[in-house]
């Protein structure tokens, strides 16, 4: 709990300084007061924990994001082609996919990655299954091969 508070504090300080752009005494003091108030409030709300501050993922998350950006780039081109070619080329498909993630965090990363890649949307997330709607059946096949699943599982292992 303490670790998460400290990391949240650092992030909030950076957020304030980058937003503010005025570094006079008064505004810095107000900033400190505001940040402590927000910390107090979020603790009362009980929203500061490993889910909102995923510290355990930090050191691996960048490699994953790079890979994800590449995927997003490819699937963007696919969807753009479909948009300009018209309705006849699309084959909308709905399918459930098994996921191997155990933690809530891993499931959410998986679901959001699926939605973030154009062409596939995670419609429903239940225990260990994701219901995916895909614009094109071929993009679902790519997902079923489990490349993304493997990478997220790797992300979770500490």
């Amino acid at each position: 709990m303490k670790r998460h508070s400290i990391s949240l504090f650092c992030v909030l300080v950076a957020f304030w300084l980058l937003n503010s752009g005025h570094y006079g005494f008064l505004l810095l003091a107000l900033g400190i007061i505001s940040i402590s108030f927000v910390l107090y409030l979020t603790h009362r709300m009980d929203v500061v924990d490993h889910e909102s501050q995923p510290l355990h993922l930090t050191h691996k998350v960048f490699a994953y994001h790079l890979w994800l950006i590449k995927e997003i780039f490819h699937s963007n081109i696919d969807v753009l082609k479909h948009i300009w070619r018209g309705q006849l080329t699309i084959t909308p498909t709905l399918k459930t996919i098994k996921i191997s993630q155990q933690s809530d965090m891993g499931k959410v990363i998986y679901a959001n990655s699926i939605t973030l890649t154009p062409g596939t949307i995670s419609v429903d997330l239940e225990n260990d299954e994701i219901l995916v709607h895909a614009l094109d059946a071929s993009s679902l096949e790519g997902l079923e091969l489990g490349e993304m699943d493997k990478r997220i599982s790797k992300l979770e292992q500490i």
């Binding site: 963007n76 018209g86 909308p92 890649t117 154009p118 709607h133």
Partner: peptide, 28 residues
């Protein structure tokens, strides 16, 4: 890309496929 996303929003046949079109706008 934004304009073609919006065109997709108009052209695609149902709600779920339209979502794909907006997700193009929202990412790239």
């Amino acid at each position: 890309i934004c304009v073609s996303g919006s065109i997709g929003l108009l052209r695609f046949p149902d709600f779920y496929t339209r979502m794909h079109a907006t997700s193009v706008t929202e990412t790239s």
